[in-house]
Design a protein around this nucleic acid. Sequence first.
RNA 1: GCCGAAGUGGUGGAAUUGGUAGACACGCUGGACUCAAAAUCCAGUGCUAGCAAUAGUGUGCGGGUUCGAGUCCCGCCUUCGGUACCA
Length: 946
Amino acid sequence: MHYHPENIEPKWRKNWVETQLYKVSNNTEKPKYYVLDMFPYPSGAGLHVGHPLGYIASDIFSRYKRLQGFNVLHPMGYDAFGLPAEQYAIQTGVHPAVSTDENIKRYREQLDNIGFCYDWSREVKTSDPSYYKWTQWIFLQLYGHYYDQNQNKAVSIDELISVFEKEGNASVKAANSQDFIFSASEWQNMNAKQKDDVLMNYRLAYRKTGYVNWCEALGTVLANDEVKDGFSERGGFPVEKKAMMQWSLRITAYAERLLNDLDTLEWSDALKAMQRNWIGRSEGAQVFFDIQGHDQKLEIFTTRPDTIFGATYMVLAPEHDLVGLITTADQKEAVAEYVDYVSSRSEVDRMSEVKEVTGVFTGAYARHPLTGKNIPIWLGEYVLKDYGTGAIMAVPSDDDRDQVFAKKFGLEIIEVVDKTEYPGATAHDKVGKMMNSDFLNGVEVKEAISAMLSKIESLGIGSRKINYKLRDANYSRQRYWGEPFPIAYDKDGVSHALDIYKLPLELPELENFQPASGGKSPVARAEDWVNQYPGMELETDTMPGFAGSSWYFLRYMDAVNDKAFASKEAIDYWQDVDLYVGGTEHAVGHLMYSRCWHKFLYDLGYVPTIEPFKRLVNQGMITAYGYYAENLKFNDDQTLIGNIKDINGQNNMQVGSPIRLAYINDFLDPQGRITKEKFVEYYTSIGKNFNVNGDLLKYHWVKDENGSEFFTVNIVQEKMSKSKYNVQNPDEVVEKYGADCFRMYEMFLGPIEQSKPWDTKGIDGVNRFLRKYWSLYFNENGWNVSSEAPTAEEYKVLHTTIKKVTEDIERFSFNTCVSAFMMCVNELKKLECNKKEILSPLNILLAPFAPFITEELHALLGNIDSVHKASYPVFDAQYMVQDTVEYPVCVNGKKRDMVEVSSKLTPKEVQDIAMTLDNVKKYVEGKELQRVIVVPGKMINLVVKE
RNA sequence: GCCGAAGUGGUGGAAUUGGUAGACACGCUGGACUCAAAAUCCAGUGCUAGCAAUAGUGUGCGGGUUCGAGUCCCGCCUUCGGUACCA
């Protein structure tokens, strides 16, 4: 008679597994719908209450679509390769595969507990050889293709080779990093190694030496999106630039398509903006400057060719290739010293001293292509090697950085844009009239840009060019726990793809997971493995974390296929992901790589759609209530002083007083002081219980004006993780209140997109709702559902709820759905409604939210089949219609009276009646009536002249 | 600096195209039931004044458009997220 979830939920949990209720077929007449969650990294901490937020939302949507008659694919799996498991292995010796499997088991239990409708027969695990076989296969496709800019698609490298054999590379238009032109005969005369090197400059997966993000503490390189503020995203260790031979993905080849196709997606503007920003397209010109006394030309990129008459000097990145060549004898020493100084500085150094200007003169001069004047060539840290050409023409009048540089080193400044007509405008606004600029004088900036572009092209000194901030993605990791590259090198160092029929190339067994010497992966120690092919050595680096996650959504379509990553039939049926739910932390990493891989597979004809994720919803994070440190600073005696505040900025406490901030204890010394050594020690040992998503503290090391080192901490709300002792375990909530209650409460907390702190103080309201809902079906004697015909009022309550809930599910507003259910039950309770014709459809409506209680009641209502196979109730407008409607009559918006009007009238008819009402005069009180506005269902407004 | 999102009671949050701001819930106050408590039920609850009907006021701040603005426009402030010598 009373609601007892602990009796209901285990029963149905078991039943759903036994009846394979959620198994999805690829062969059906039904329309498809694909709902995907971002699969989790199975960390040692298990699920916390923040995790399921998105999963519950997508589960509700899946169940809703299923009730509407769609064949819904709603799978789950694990992003199982990654750094934390390997860090754990280094410390404990436990093989990552073992700890990962344990974690997965735990995750699975927790997921099952919450009642998700995943089709577990399609589970994927990126660390499983049967899965990463296909990750390796896709890599080999990337290796075996180049990007043809004429056809605007990926094309087999064999076709490129045949072009080289016939005519060399002069006419090839491809995304490449090839820096010289060769003829057919030159190609034919190259040896195998030389040919391999050339092809690497075209392949979509290629190897090159370049400056990479090296993280000493993790012993590996990282991709750009894995570095935040000069620290590694995972672990928060310092990152430095280092020149290394690495595999990369030529994602830049797809920059234009990645940018343009964003327009076809139903993603939030914020997310699209982040992607656009990351791609960073800018239009401009490449211009070649002659260098005095040298044949080489200096190539620069500029978005402001109009200001070329204001170019008074040139700046090269210190790492620029021409530096050695052009530096004059008397500047040699100074330049060498400067280049040394720059390379000794870490990324963090550079970032914390952005304002400081450094540079050195090379002694060389370039010739201005329009004025013929000699202008000095400098080196400067502020010019980056890997953006544009690594060289600029400096226009100190219209570029802030150039101006600061020019002032510091006393270089000439020529004003070229007259902005007096635009007070407050900056160079960024691209407005003003040109001056001191020869034939451009008096021309508006925007016209001057296009005029100058034409001039540059007609003079043959350069051409229009588009540049991107997007860089090729670093694809090598010097780690064990990742996909091995199916690549071997022969004795000459020529790369060879492993036969795809020999895939997967599985990881060697290891016992010691410490990085090998010389910055190499631990895999390098498995010598038998490395030398398993006679005369060849296998690549010892492994693939990065994003490799397996860049295509997993395709594997779900046909998860156990061993002939292909998924069958053509399965892909043609499922097409793409209709709804993708996940966190913003993947805005530029995972989502960019997945889109790129999908487009590549599209080019090769393996997938029918140009984009993988049609609609994307970002869920916010559930944060912990916690404390944060403010103005932390190390004293000379190495103790840390500062204020600890709670989440609301109150309860100031001195560090050292009894702190409820548990994790601070982890770096207290025996005297209870926080020392820098202890902090750093703690920070570097954190791998033990370190949650992937949990930064301990977001801190920045800064030097103050006296040169003493301190750090500031600017985290207010923190993500949950085990290492912070603030995990709210969903199982405990489920045990106490039931899964239905947990699901509905997480939805009730607020909009999905918003981050919010977890607290359980409102959970009783949801629990009360479920008990109240249950009590509609029972009285003190037991089951009490009547088959009498409902009243119009009862129908109205039901259909108002159907309308509201259905609309709100579509726009992903689940908190208002829960409110609508609460209101509905309150009203039915008031009407003492126990009619089957009302309760039965209401129960189906509620089923996506609370699958257990509704299943039980559905069965008690006499249904044999599951509520999850029922038909979604349809909104019927006729029940909403009432004979008369009460309208407030307002004068200039102020309510004066109520009138009854037939609801069958149109607003126009209501308006006519209102105009002729006898007492309109009374409302208007002698003033002139201008018009009557009828807001249907809301009000009749008489507008009068005041 | 640049890009993006947001700012509503004691709290979480509603208000979908400009139309009676504060739905739904938490909390709080009072009451019923009870020896008592829990649970449940009923009533009240933006703020100010008033016994009350009621009046005034009210969506970060300052202006504006409109019969009518949380919503639209202009100028600020604050918070959060992203990004940064990107030429």
